[in-house]
Simulated assay, not measured.
Amino acid sequence: MAKSVRRKLRLMEWARVRSSEERVQQILDERTERLATRENAATTRPEALPRALVCGVGRERFGIPVETVAEVLPPQKCVPVPDGPPALIGLFGRSGKLVSVIDLALALGLESSSSDNEDQHFVLLRREQPQVALRVERAHAVADILPLTDEEAAGFRNDAVTGYGTIQSGPAGQDEALSLLDTERLLRPLLSSSSLPGV
Rank of each mutant, 00 (worst) to 15 (best):
E39W: 11
V69F: 12
R59I: 01
V72G: 06
P65C: 06
E60C: 05
A52V: 10
E47L: 15
E47D: 15
L49D: 09
R61P: 00
I64V: 14
R51L: 07
V57P: 02
P65Y: 03
V66N: 00
G58S: 04
A36K: 05
T44S: 11
V54P: 03
T37V: 01
V66M: 07
R51V: 11
A48P: 08
G56T: 00
R38E: 13
P46D: 09
E71G: 14
G58Q: 06
C55W: 03
L35N: 14
A48V: 14
L49K: 13
A52P: 04
P65A: 09
L35Q: 14
G58R: 07
P65D: 09
R45P: 01
E33W: 01
T44A: 10
T43S: 11
L73E: 13
A52L: 04
A36M: 07
L53F: 10
E60I: 03
A41W: 05
L35V: 14
A41S: 05
G56Q: 02
E71I: 15
V72I: 09
T44L: 08
A36G: 00
R59A: 01
P46H: 05
A41N: 02
T68R: 11
P65E: 10
T44D: 04
G56P: 00
A36V: 03
R61G: 03
V69T: 15
A36P: 00
E39D: 13
E39P: 08
R51H: 12
R45T: 11
L53S: 03
V72L: 02
F62Q: 05
E67W: 07
T37A: 10
T68S: 13
E33C: 09
R59F: 06
N40R: 08
V72N: 01
C55T: 07
A48T: 14
R61C: 01
E67T: 14
R45G: 04
T43I: 13
N40Y: 06
R59L: 02
V66F: 07
R45L: 12
L35D: 15
V72T: 07
E71L: 15
V54D: 03
N40K: 11
T68W: 10
T37D: 10
P46W: 03
A42E: 10
P50T: 05
L53W: 10
R51C: 07
